[in-house]
Amino acid sequence: MQSFLRDAAQFLPLLLQGLKFTVLVTLGSLALSTVLGLVWALMRVSGVAPLVLVAKLVVNTLRGIPILVQLFYIYFVFPEFGLALSALQAAILGLGIAYSAYQAENFRAGIEAIDHGQVEAAESIGMGWFLMMRRVILPQAIKVVLPPYGNIMIMMLKDSSQASTITVAELTLQGSLLASSTFKNMTVYTLVALLYLSMSLPLIAFVGWLERRFGKGARR
């Protein structure tokens, strides 16, 4: 135990450097996937045939290709088209785009769960489509969407480790570099696992808080 603590104190600074990139990748791709996912979902429920078609095509393509392959594509293939990104940029872009498909499906399910009477009530007081979405549908859909959104957040935090494959020195890559140079596999990977948990458990609590916060007054 003592040697574990001694090693831990020695490894922790390096792992915390990796942690910084894990947080950056997660937050960046979370923001991007949320915005993009909302765009796909709104296109999908717009009722405008070409928009619906494009949204379906994009979402199914993204869902049909492994995230790892999408990351490789952006990092290694895009430069051939003149778009060279840093590893961090490519990771945020790749994970953000890949996850936007899952976000979109979640948002669409939330929007479609709202009673059609709400649409009629909004239309009957003269609301246009965007106003109705903003004032009536989305505020109610949030409640439906939050629990799965929380799951997606946690999955993204863990999937940010895939950025290690395109050389982003995040927690998992730092860990495996340390482990292979010191052979202290147990110490290193225990620390790595604990560090992931120290981020995901507060995240789970935060999602629970969000559900309580947005659930207020929205009971039916």
Partner: peptide, 9 residues
Amino acid sequence: FQRFNLFPH
């Protein structure tokens, strides 16, 4: 409306 369709939020 028959079923009121108030905005529940």
